[in-house]
Simulated scan of single mutants.
Amino acid sequence: MENGHGCARATKDVSLQELRDTLAEFSKVRGWDQYHSPRNLLLALVGEVGELSEIFQWKGEVARGLPNWSSKDKEHLEEEISDVLLYLVQLADVCGLDLGQAALTKIIKNAQKYPVVNQTTSS
């Protein structure tokens, strides 16, 4: 399915590798690779995180699932979260890192650092 921008709209789970490959092709055909140094991608990522933060800045606590948000607000959030993800995937790629494997390794390290503590309740 086309989204109007010459890219297929995903209707299935998408892997990080698929995102990486699609982004690489997107940048290559536009001649943007020359601008995608690790530093430039990091600065762009930080900018996008700022835009994402602005969405929540004055909302206070927000319920899971965003039940009180309009579809327009949810779409805006989706776009900004996507921007953050796309820059992160590109940054990992230009640094030669396997982002998916790095994330799984980090979860394992966190599990060791923060083991499950059995909690018992007293009555």
Rank of each mutant, 00 (worst) to 15 (best):
G6H: 00
W58N: 14
R30S: 03
K74A: 07
L23H: 11
G47E: 07
N118I: 09
A111S: 08
E78M: 15
P38Q: 12
W32K: 15
K109I: 10
L45F: 09
W58Y: 13
L85N: 05
V117D: 06
E25W: 06
L19Q: 07
A92P: 09
P67Y: 02
K59G: 00
F56V: 04
E54K: 14
P115L: 01
V117Y: 02
L19N: 08
Q101G: 05
V84F: 11
V84N: 03
D73S: 11
K74C: 11
V29F: 03
Q119L: 13
R9A: 12
V117P: 00
N40Y: 00
N40V: 04
Y35C: 13
E61Y: 09
Y87L: 15
G6D: 04
K59E: 13
W69R: 11
R9M: 10
L41Y: 04
D21F: 01
Y35F: 10
D33S: 14
D73G: 04
L66F: 15
D33C: 05
K12D: 13
I81A: 15
F26M: 14
Q101I: 06
H76D: 07
Q17C: 00
Q17K: 12
T22I: 07
E75I: 11
K72C: 00
A10L: 05
A10M: 07
L23F: 07
A103L: 12
K72S: 07
L66T: 12
G60D: 10
G65W: 06
N40G: 06
L42R: 13
V49D: 00
Y35S: 12
G96N: 06
A92I: 08
V84R: 06
R20Y: 00
L66A: 09
W32R: 12
C95L: 15
Y114R: 03
L41T: 02
L23N: 15
V49P: 04
S53P: 01
E2D: 15
F56H: 14
V46N: 12
D33T: 10
E48K: 02
Q17M: 08
L42C: 09
R39T: 14
K28D: 08
W32G: 03
A102P: 01
G31F: 05
E25V: 04
K72V: 08
I108M: 10
T11K: 05
G4Y: 05
Q90H: 01
S53E: 12
L43C: 01
L42P: 00
E78R: 14
S37Q: 03
A8G: 08
G4T: 02
S123R: 14
A8F: 07
